[in-house]
Design a protein around this nucleic acid. Structure first.
Length: 235
DNA sequence: AAACAGTGCAACCGCGTGTCT
DNA sequence: CAGACACGCGGTTGCACTGTT
């Protein structure tokens, strides 16, 4: 094996502003794609994946930074109810947001909130800048940590593809939560059509998620989609 | 003021899928 | 058809930052 090919040293870690500038300039000049050649031709000692991720999540135009608005947060919750951990699909409904950002936001803010049954109220003073956790005292955070830590350390949950079970648990919690609050219920564009759908073999509270659901299918007010439609969409 | 603990987020990794040859 | 390659996605990790003791 003396002819072992020497791989170029791939740089890792946080991106520097100079690197961002190089990548941005290169992509704007040559367009997206061929990420593996970007590092060679641009002079960046980064892997193609890293370049692609950096561009997609931070450098491309129209990226929206900063805390989620209440509308975005509500949409994420409803989309997650419908789609599960399909972050790219969810992010696709949020202009300027990336799948990574949505995923992080869910894991750090929304997931534990759903689990604990807590939710952001309509009172804007409760969550103005997306950094609400910073203002929680220790006892509040400790109760949340139990959830997030157990999620991380539970070997059953580290399996990756057992999201179905977790999904059902969250669904139950969220459904109870949603039913107890008017906050998510009202959607002026869709009539309350109750259990027209099944989701994870459970009745789907359509009047809670109808906005997301019909948006996803391009609902025009005339058609009613069947369970089969929904399942084929989920596949 | 220092040490410690918790949190949030950027980035990496592995895997699945699509495309090309 | 099969293998190689590129891309995209979701899960996970590492670390800087912030709050608490």
């Amino acid at each position: 094996m003396e002819n072992k090919q020497v791989k170029p040293l791939i740089k890792k870690g946080l991106w520097k502003p100079e690197e961002d500038l190089i990548l941005k300039t290169y992509v704007e000049a040559h367009g997206e794609g061929n990420w593996t050649t970007v590092s060679e031709k641009s002079g960046l000692m980064r892997g193609g994946k890293s370049c692609r991720l950096r561009w997609k999540n931070y450098l491309r135009p129209n990226i929206k930074r900063g805390g989620m608005t209440q509308e975005e947060e509500d949409l994420i919750i409803r989309m997650h109810k419908l789609l599960g951990n399909r972050w790219s699909l969810i992010a696709g409904r949020l202009p300027g947001r990336t799948d990574n950002e949505v995923k992080n936001y869910w894991n750090t803010h929304l997931n534990k909130r759903c689990r604990t049954g807590k939710r952001r109220t309509a009172d804007p003073s409760n969550h103005q800048n997306g950094n609400d956790d910073k203002y929680k005292n220790k006892s509040q955070r400790d109760s949340q940590t139990t959830c997030s830590t157990s999620q991380k350390s539970n070997p059953e949950e580290s399996d990756g593809k057992k999201e179905q079970k977790e999904e059902n648990t969250v669904t139950d919690t969220w459904m109870q939560d949603a039913q107890s609050m008017n906050y998510y219920i009202e959607s002026p564009m869709v009539p309350p059509c109750s259990d027209a759908f099944l989701f994870n073999e459970k009745p789907f509270i359509a009047h809670c998620d109808s906005l997301v659901l019909f948006e996803s299918f391009g609902y025009n007010g005339e058609e009613m989609y069947s369970q089969v439609d929904l399942q084929s969409f989920m596949l």
